[in-house]
Write a protein that binds this DNA or RNA. Sequence first.
DNA 1: AGCAAGATCGGT
DNA 2: CCGATCTTGCTG
Length: 176
Amino acid sequence: MKNRNNNIIYNKTFFENDVLKVAPNLLGKYLAINTDKIQNKYKITEVEAYRGEEDSACHASKGRTERCEIMYSSGGHIYVYLIYGMYWMLNIVTGRTGNPQAVLIRGLEGLDGPGKITRKLGIDKSYYGENLLVSNRIWLENQNENAEYITGKRIGIDYAGEYWKNKHWRFILNVK
DNA sequence: AGCAAGATCGGT
DNA sequence: CCGATCTTGCTG
């Protein structure tokens, strides 16, 4: 797994679907990272969907800002931001241009927690805007086509209000 | 220019 | 439960 291989690169269409379709489809797929520090693949086990300006938990709920601008780009780009002054959050932009959506990567196999993931993989602001479709240091590889999963409420968004905070937009891979 | 809040984590 | 830690976006 030193480089991108031709068989298992996702096409643009995969990421341009609605976030509520893409998010569960990421479960069981592999996140590949290839830098001088780390070369590995990790099965994606837990994700959360953030969907559009109407979603008050979504960073785009206040409209375009410098931070969330990348969410308005086409699916397949990487959205990274710093939270609590300490932890980088890794997101995959979904949907078509002008439609702000993203999937937060919360868990990888043997590595639970969005902050721990980026710390382990060395992901920081330099990944902002990276494109999974062409990048040579981060990409996705296909494995399970139809992974089974359960859903739950999104974590850490109590500020979003009852309606949005109660949506079951967290997707967790079923462990057999 | 100042300030409050935050898609977290680890230790009490 | 609480503190760490600092960028961002909003207010004035």
